[in-house]
Design a protein around this nucleic acid. Structure first.
Lengths: 208, 208
DNA sequence: TAGAAGTACGAACGATCGTGCTTTTTAGCA
DNA sequence: TGCTAAAAAGCACGATCGTTCGTACTTCTA
C-alpha cells in the first residue's frame, strides 16, 4: 500500500536529491508522452546529465517507470486527496474531492494534464506487467476513495439511499477525465465548466 | 472531404487488393497500439511480407498513417453513421446514432475498441502535423453530425428548446468514450450498460 | 587521513526504427 | 507467348532505443 521508498540502504543525500529531481521531470514528461514515450535519453538531456548516470539510479527502465508512478501518486495525493480531507464527511467531502480534482486538472500541475489520465489511456490495450499493475492499483485506490465518500453521503442522508455509487462514480470520472483529455487536444478550457455543470446536475438529481 | 483513393494512375488489381489488406490490418493494430505504435516491421511480419515491399505502397510512414485513418473512417461510417441514417429525423435519429456507436464499440469491430478513441488520446498532447489534423477533422465531422441531430430534435419538438447541444454532445461522448476506454483496460463489458443508462437518463431530462 | 562506497560519465553493444537503393518476381496486355 | 511496368523482396544506412562496462570524481566514515 504505502509506496514509501524505504530502502535507505545505500543512498546518500546527493543521490536522493537528484533522484527526486529526476522523478519530478519524469512525471511531467510522462504526463505528456506517456510512460513509453518517457525515454531515458530525452530525460537525461532535459536534466543535462548523462544517460548512463541517470540510468544507474534505477537499473532498468521498468524501475524508472514504477518510481515515476509513485512520484506522480504523491503529487496527486498532495494536491487532491489531502486538501479534500478537511471537508466534513458526507456530501461536502465528496464535493470537495470533485472540485479539488477539477482545479488540479485546470491548474495543469503536470505538463500534460492529469498524469493518470494519460497513462490510463496508454495502457488500456497494452501488455500486462508490473507497470500496468501499479497504474491499476492507483486508479482503484482513487475509485475506492470516491465510492466511500458517496456511500458516506448516502448514510448521512445527503444523497438518496437508492443511488448507485459505482454508477455515480463512473459518470463523475468520465466527465472530468474527458474534460482533461479534450483540453489537452484542443486547448479549450471551457470543457471543465461543461464537466462541472454536468456533475453538479447529476449530483442534484441524486440528492434527497 | 471524400477520401476516395482516386489516383488510379499506376495501380494494378493486385496492388489495390494488398493495399486494402494492409490498411485493414493497420487499422486493427493502430486501434490497440496507436498510430506511432503501428510499426512498419510489425505490420509487415503480421502480413507475412517484407518491410520494403509494404513500405513501397505508401512511401512514408506518415502516408501510411493517413491512409490508415482514412480506412478507419470508412469502417466507422459503414458501421455507425450509415445504419443510423435510416431512422427518422429528430430524436429517433439521435438515439439511433448513440445506440449504433455503442453497439459498434461493444462488437469490437476494431481489435482495440474504438479506433478514434485510441488515436484521440494518443495525439492529445503530441506534436501537430498532418496526422493530427486528419484525426481532428474526422472527430469534428462526428461532432458536427451529432450537433445537427440534436438541433434537429429540438426543432422537431422532441427535445427542450433550451437544451444546450454542445453540452449534451460533450456528455454523451464522454460517457460512451470512457466506457470503451475502460472496457479495454479491465475487460468489464458492463460499463457500456452504465454509459447507456446515464445517457438515457440525460436525454430524458432534456425531453419536453 | 586513508579507504570504501556512492555518484556520474563516456563509449559501445545489439536491436529496432523509418527509409533509401537495387534487383528479382509477377501480373496483365499486345 | 513475350514484353513491360507494377509489385515485392533484399540489403544497407543512420538514428535512437535500453542496457552494460570500465573508469573517474566525490562524499562519508573508520
Amino acid at each position: 500500500m504505502s509506496v514509501d521508498t524505504s530502502d535507505t540502504d545505500g543512498r546518500r543525500a546527493k543521490g536522493r536529491r537528484t533522484r527526486a529531481q529526476i522523478l519530478e521531470t519524469a512525471a511531467d514528461i510522462a504526463s505528456v508522452e506517456g510512460l513509453e514515450g518517457l525515454t531515458i535519453g530525452r530525460l537525461a538531456s532535459e536534466l543535462a546529465m548523462s544517460k548512463s548516470g541517470l540510468f544507474a539510479h534505477f537499473g532498468s527502465k521498468e524501475e524508472l517507470q514504477l518510481a515515476t508512478i509513485g512520484a506522480a501518486r504523491d503529487i496527486f495525493a498532495r494536491n487532491v486527496v489531502e486538501p479534500a480531507k478537511e471537508a466534513e464527511r458526507g456530501l461536502p467531502r465528496l464535493e470537495a474531492l470533485i472540485t479539488a480534482k477539477l482545479s488540479y486538472m485546470r491548474a495543469e500541475i503536470f505538463a500534460g494534464g492529469c498524469f493518470f489520465e494519460t497513462v490510463r489511456s496508454e495502457f488500456d490495450s497494452r501488455e500486462p506487467g508490473p507497470v500496468r499493475d501499479a497504474i491499476e492499483a492507483d486508479l482503484q485506490d482513487w475509485e475506492q476513495l470516491m465510492v466511500r465518500a458517496i456511500t458516506s453521503a448516502k448514510k448521512a442522508g445527503h444523497l438518496r439511499a437508492d443511488a448507485d455509487a459505482e454508477q455515480l462514480l463512473f459518470e463523475i470520472d468520465a466527465l472530468s477525465g474527458t474534460a482533461s483529455q479534450r483540453h489537452q487536444l484542443n486547448g479549450d478550457a471551457s470543457l471543465y465548466d461543461r464537466a462541472e455543470a454536468a456533475i453538479r446536475a447529476r449530483l442534484r438529481a441524486a440528492t434527497v
